[in-house]
Measured scan of single mutants.
Amino acid sequence: AREMGVIAAMRDGFGFIKCVDRDVRMFFHFSEILDGNQLHIADEVEFTVVPDMLSAQRNHAIRIKKLPKGTV
């Protein structure tokens, strides 16, 4: 199932999404941004959540798609 959120932080090559449906900041890597979009803080996005290979306690966001403002 796809989830929605807002870009909360951007770093060098990765960032975090503030999720709508869960009280966490979800890690993502820039390589998972679809359509070659440039994302910025406060952009609204949808994404798929998958378990982190390195840590069973953590998840991360993949297949991130920018949404029109006002969607979330």
Rank of each mutant, 00 (worst) to 15 (best):
R58D: 13
D21I: 06
D23Y: 05
A8Y: 04
V20F: 11
D43R: 00
L39T: 03
F14W: 13
Q57M: 07
I17H: 01
D52Q: 09
A61V: 05
T71D: 07
F47N: 02
R11D: 15
L34T: 08
I41L: 10
R58S: 11
N37M: 10
N59R: 09
D35Q: 06
R22E: 07
E46C: 02
N37K: 15
A56Y: 14
H60C: 12
M53G: 15
V72Y: 05
L54T: 14
M26L: 14
R22A: 06
M10V: 14
E44Q: 05
G15M: 01
V24A: 14
R25L: 12
M4N: 13
G36H: 07
A56D: 11
M26I: 13
R11I: 03
M4V: 12
L54Q: 15
M4E: 08
H29R: 13
A8R: 03
R11K: 14
V50E: 09
I62M: 07
I41A: 07
M26V: 15
N37Q: 15
V45E: 03
Q57R: 11
I64L: 07
I7A: 02
R58L: 09
R58W: 10
V45S: 02
E32G: 05
K66R: 11
D12R: 07
K69V: 08
P51G: 14
E32S: 11
I33G: 00
D35M: 05
K66L: 07
I64A: 01
L34E: 14
H60T: 13
R22L: 06
D35G: 11
V45Y: 03
H40V: 09
G70C: 00
R22Q: 07
A1E: 11
A42D: 12
V24T: 10
G36D: 09
P68F: 01
D35K: 08
Q57S: 12
Q57Y: 13
C19R: 08
E3H: 11
H60A: 10
M26A: 09
I64F: 02
G36Y: 05
N59M: 11
F47K: 01
D52T: 12
K69R: 11
R25Q: 15
R63E: 09
H29W: 12
E44A: 04
R25I: 12
E32N: 13
F14R: 03
A1K: 14
D21P: 04
E46A: 04
K69N: 11
G36F: 06
F30R: 06
V45C: 01
A56I: 11
H40F: 09
F14L: 04
D52G: 11
S55F: 09
R11H: 15
R11C: 15
N37T: 12
D23T: 03
P51A: 15
A8F: 06
D52I: 04
E46M: 03
E44V: 06
R11F: 13
N37G: 11
F27R: 14
I62A: 11
D52P: 06
K66E: 00
D35I: 05
I64R: 01
L39P: 02
G36N: 08
R63I: 04
I62H: 06
V24I: 11
F27L: 12
A1L: 09
I41Y: 02
F27M: 14
L54V: 12
R58E: 09
L39W: 00
G36L: 05
M4W: 08
M4G: 01
F14A: 05
